[in-house]
């Protein structure tokens, strides 16, 4: 166990998988000498060569499609999308190609491809460099979607994603890159896809979140505890496949639920989680479930406007306290 940043943990996963499997290679804009816009691949080109840590021209559709073809032909490409917003340019290749291959062509088609996409706001990058577009991909059968919130999960889930035989959208978060935590060494770090993490145990309310919002929810829970509210935090970690059982077990225990997402509200993944709770644990709810999300507006570059849009620990605390209060009034 070593203490690493989220960035270092990701880099360690990439380095270990590159060393373990000669079919693994990395592709993306400025990932070689430059080390990636956020420094995740720094040093890897020197270690593994420019063939396997491959800089690309600015052609998202082209190189994501090339990753699909390379995966079909036996390679295991890991592609970096510098900002998740740029994934728009490659959606056809993910949705109409990668996602369909296995279902239509059967076991002969194997598409082990990881798309590392840097999502989230909080850095004042404005409307086209701050989005959380995970719900687009959770909506498409055939794609797995992963969004770790801790360095340990970043490493463990990235290793699992690389070894998975399906196309995986692996969502990283700008604000998490500098966060530190204990990370197991080598394969000890491996975290299987499809298992939520009980980030904090509590009894009064369940907070469901992922990525940066899970980290914020954990911090909120610490303060809530001081205020006498015991919040349980479920970090989904993997959105597809979704570990709804862990969520339901928590809701059956706490009877209240707050879902927090950084994406805009309508059609977000939080709505899916909420609906599954209604379908499976309605009788256990003592208060209406509640969602916190970015309102249905594009994100702004202004720090003030951006902060106004994105949920944070303060708003999570407030919403959780209100939900618990609603119950006590009954």
């Amino acid at each position: 166990m070593t203490t690493l940043t989220y960035t270092e943990a990701l880099r360690e996963a990439l380095a270990e998988e590159l060393a373990r499997d000669p079919n693994v290679f990395l592709m993306g804009e400025d990932i070689g000498l430059y080390g990636g816009a956020f420094g995740v691949t720094r040093g890897l080109m020197h270690q593994f060569g420019a063939e396997r840590v491959r800089d690309t021209p600015i052609s998202e559709q082209g190189f994501v499609g090339a990753a699909v073809g390379a995966a079909l032909a036996g390679s295991r490409p890991v592609v970096e999308i510098m900002f998740m917003d740029f994934i728009t340019l490659a959606v056809d290749q993910m949705v109409n190609q990668a996602a369909k291959l296995r279902y239509v062509f059967g076991p002969q088609a194997c598409c082990p491809l990881v798309l590392r996409a840097v999502g989230g706001g909080g850095r004042c990058y404005g409307p086209t460099h701050s989005q959380s577009l995970e719900a687009w991909f959770t909506h498409v059968p055939g794609l797995k979607v992963v969004a770790p919130s801790t360095p340990a999960d970043a490493k463990g889930l990235l290793k699992a994603a690389i070894r998975d035989d399906n196309p995986v959208v692996f969502m990283e978060h700008k604000l998490l890159y500098g966060s530190r935590g204990d990370v197991p060494e080598g394969d000890e770090a491996f975290v299987p896809l499809g298992k939520a993490r009980l980030a904090r145990v509590g009894t009064d309310i369940t907070i469901v979140a992922w990525s940066w919002m899970a980290a914020e929810a954990e911090r909120a829970a610490v303060v809530l505890d001081e205020q006498g509210i015991s919040a349980e935090v479920v970090d989904l970690r993997t959105l597809v496949p979704l570990d709804i059982e862990t969520v339901l077990a928590s809701v059956r225990k706490t009877h209240r639920v707050l879902i927090v997402q950084e994406a805009s509200k309508t059609g977000g993944f939080g709505a899916e989680v909420g609906c599954r709770i209604f379908e499976n644990a309605y009788d256990y709810l003592d208060a209406p479930l509640r969602r916190l999300a970015v309102p249905d507006v594009p994100l702004s570059a202004s720090p003030l406007l951006e902060q106004a849009a994105i949920p944070d620990r303060q708003r999570i605390m407030q919403a959780a306290a209100e939900l618990v209060g609603e119950n006590s009034e009954q």
């Binding site: 290679f25 063939e51 396997r52 559709q61 082209g62 190189f63 994501v64 499609g65 090339a66 990753a67 699909v68 073809g69 390379a70 995966a71 079909l72 032909a73 036996g74 390679s75 490409p77 056809d92 290749q93 109409n96 190609q97």
Partner: peptide, 15 residues
């Protein structure tokens, strides 16, 4: 849709 896919298969063949 298949043009980058063929290109990627060729990339894999080369790698």
């Amino acid at each position: 849709g298949s043009i980058p896919v063929a290109t990627g298969a060729a990339l894999s063949a080369k790698l």
